[in-house]
Nucleic acid binder design. Structure first.
Lengths: 349, 349
DNA sequence: ACTGTGCGTTGGAACGATCCAGGACCGAGC
DNA sequence: GCTCGGTCCTGGATCGTTCCAACGCACAGT
């Protein structure tokens, strides 16, 4: 009952555990238990404390809790600049779902980016700082393409993190991951075109050193081969830019005479639409096109671009599940989750 | 020199201020000063402490610092779901720049969203929780359209925040804001079309209760009127969707025979492109079109959509400047900053 | 009556930083 | 020689929470 603070201060300072304790006539620890382990309290005590909490509008101070529990209840999410001139803006849906799922699990999402030195962006110091200053409990890493050092670095450091994307280059990586079955997506797109009567279906994908690109390509060739449709001369591998897609499709049209294109990205598919527009061909009517990611570009471009839509909302949910397993008590072995995309059919096919 | 912690623990626990102090042979407070007020130290002491810091790889514990200073060094940024089927994804550039500028000012960005109850999303409880639990120091609010209660609520609560967008509905709002001169943007677009020889230039914008939309419309009519070009019958006001843009442009083409369209958004402009495609007209060749926001859609759609590009990077920089003024010592009066966009010309005009 | 066994609750210590009041030291001034 | 003022540094208290050891109490077992 000691007056540990001058009265009248409550108008500027939020109420603390001690204030609630005094009002409810219990000790601080009991209030703490009421918040974190209600089961430990007798029913009448619990309700008395809860009423005091409600009356004062008490909410635990995060900094104090974080200090004591050695946890920040924050999840670090690195963001890269969206490339200009591409259709890639899929992070939006993912981020939003990640924020929602995280909140339900008691976490918030902290954004950060690497420091730019000249042109190259080095992200590792940023990870390091956040870890060492205990600013975040874990990371979500979204790029696990070949040669990306972050996942490996974090693994070595035994820093908790979950990857969106398989550990392509590291078969015995220990961290949890969630990914989307890209091959299944392109296979759906290709099968869809075959069912529409197409047989000469071209592939425009990424350079061979992109394992992600090779996987998507595998979906196309699997669908073709399972119906004994030849694929030779129908595949092209280029950079992920609109102009590359435009040039590749022009060459393919001249040399292989396809009636449809399956692309590894919406960006490449937009390149195909450029070629068609230049030649006075109509997408969907004369030549069919499918993309990948169901970007806003795919949704709005006339006549609508058929595209493979990744279940980013579900990915985020799985990522948070994995994070909970990582940070919670049970040392669960979370191997990896593979989700299946779906095809959104629009006017371009 | 007291052994305040069991040895061997340093391998798992990051070094603390006390560790650095012991190694450098100074008190904790001196280390703290070396980090926060280097001027107070004698030169040789400072370098000795700095060396100890470097050797141990010390970084201040965020939670402890936050607890003591009653600040989280976090800035809350609410995110809304990007609407499907529109071209609006402009947050990407803004967020990235905000993260970068914030880091330079010593802050990180915390994402949050409202809790969905049924269909409506109520964000105010989320703001309230973050404030009361001292999880963030300030907010950045990005939607200040009419009827948005957040800015007003925060103002009343005297919570520190900066708005991206003018306080349209509250002339005597006290908070700092940063905005882009939309009228200047549409005026540039319209003038550009006039210089290309167009005289019948139509406007497709938003419903009248959108002050933001009315401002953009004013830029169009200002450019027209300053050259004595009549505007009657050439304006349309609809919802911000692709289909609305398509329908509005179809009606305008039939009734007013414009040779060019200035649109309040890329989404509406895409609607125009749909109409043109349906009628076998060529954007840029037969009919000129301009959009607003320079979205990825504008950048990738054939033949390229001329669009007004907001200086989002600069907006973020100004927002952080305002935040620093708000949270720093000097109670600066930061009235409001208005930036000018620029026109990115592409094939559609 | 005496000892164990839970349950519900308690007060002190700790997390790691900063705030604050004051101490050691040194040269200047009378 | 003594005080004074300033610079540089120190040790204790504190922020608000959770961890930890232990305590009072009611009840069951020998």
């Amino acid at each position: 009952m000691s007056v540990s603070r001058p009265s009248g201060r409550s108008s500027v300072t939020p109420p603390t555990l001690a204030d609630v304790a005094e009002r409810a006539g219990v000790s601080r620890q009991t209030v703490s238990n009421a918040v974190n382990n209600p089961d430990l309290l007798r029913e009448d005590t619990l309700s008395r404390v809860q009423q005091a909490i409600a009356e004062l509008g008490y909410l635990p101070n995060r900094a104090a809790r974080n200090l004591r529990t050695r946890a920040s209840h924050l999840i670090g999410l690195p963001i890269k600049a969206a490339e200009e001139g591409t259709a890639n803006a899929l992070m939006d849906r993912f981020v939003h779902s990640l924020v929602d799922s995280s909140r339900e699990a008691g976490y918030h999402v902290l954004l950060f980016s690497g420091t730019r030195t000249g042109k190259a962006v080095d992200e590792l110091p940023a990870y390091d700082d956040l870890l060492r200053s205990t600013a975040v409990d874990a990371f979500v890493v979204t790029d696990t393409y070949l040669g990306n050092p972050q996942a490996e670095w974090l693994d070595q450091r035994r820093a908790p993190f979950v990857a969106f994307g398989r550990p392509w280059n590291d078969p015995d990586a220990r961290h949890p991951w969630v990914d989307v079955d890209g091959a299944a997506g392109t296979e759906m797109a290709t099968t869809h075109l075959i069912e529409r009567g197409h047989t000469r279906i071209a592939w425009i994908g990424w350079r061979k050193d992109s394992l992600l690109g090779e996987e998507r390509r595998a979906g196309w060739s699997r669908a073709m081969r399972s119906r004994d449709i030849p694929t030779s001369g129908l595949a092209s591998r280029v950079e992920d830019t609109v102009s590359s897609g435009r040039e590749a499709s022009a060459v393919l049209l001249d040399e292989a005479h396809p009636s449809a294109f399956v692309c590894a990205s919406d960006t490449l598919a937009m390149g195909v639409l450029h070629t068609l527009a230049e030649r006075g061909l109509s997408a969907g009517h004369d030549i069919a096109v499918t993309g990948f990611d169901d970007s806003q570009v795919a949704q709005t471009v006339p006549p609508g671009l058929t595209s493979v839509r990744q279940p980013l909302e579900d990915v985020a949910v799985e990522v948070v599940k994995a994070l909970e397993g990582l940070l919670g008590a049970p040392p669960t072995v979370h191997p990896g989750v593979l989700l299946t995309p779906r095809l959104v059919v629009r006017g371009s096919s």
